[in-house]
């Protein structure tokens, strides 16, 4: 039986006919919509490489069925830059060497955007490390990743302070 779903992906509405309910959101993005920035690492919810935002919240796209997300608003790594202008987290990952091979980086950046949206970690490195523990980096760029997230958190806090001053 076919299932029709409609998603907004990076601001663009996509109407999709699913001929199989087994398709995960990750496979839909990569194989059907050809958005291959979202990576398939473990495909079992352990590595975080497939992290995307659904309605502003970070989740593992490998552990959810596309068919159950009719109407969802999805943001992937392809949707975070504005033209040539990098998202602040993308720029911070480069500035702080938050990567080596780069395979985990889209998931790390999407996870960090989710973390900042959640507003729970603040500028506490301990909380940032805890909140980023769902994203593995086998190159071991963790210290750079934490610094990048901290940097963006601090700039946001400063900007907010200036606004309220």
């Amino acid at each position: 039986m076919n299932h029709s779903i409609s998603l907004t992906v990076n601001g663009v509405r996509r109407d999709i006919e699913l001929d199989d309910p087994r398709v995960t959101l990750l496979d839909l993005l990569r194989e059907r919509l050809h958005l291959t920035g979202t990576k398939k690492g473990c495909d079992r919810g352990q590595c975080g490489a497939c992290t995307i935002l659904i309605d502003g919240r970070r989740i593992n796209s490998c552990l959810t069925l596309a068919v159950s997300h009719d109407g969802a608003d999805i943001l992937t790594i392809e949707g975070v830059a504005r033209g040539d202008q990098l998202h602040p987290l993308q720029a911070a990952f480069i500035a702080h060497d938050g990567l080596q091979c780069g395979f985990c980086t889209p998931g790390q950046i999407m996870s960090a955007i989710g973390l900042i949206n959640e507003g729970q970690a603040g500028d506490d490195p301990e909380r940032i490390r805890e909140a980023m523990s769902g994203n593995l980096c086998r190159c071991g760029a963790y210290s750079g990743i934490t610094e990048a997230v901290l940097d963006v958190q601090n700039s946001l806090a400063e900007a907010n302070q200036r606004r309220s001053a």
């Binding site: 975080g48 992290t51 989740i59 593992n60 552990l63 959810t64 989710g114 523990s133 769902g134």
Partner: peptide
Amino acid sequence: ASAQLRNA
């Protein structure tokens, strides 16, 4: 779990 899993 992780933040992603707790969100879902």
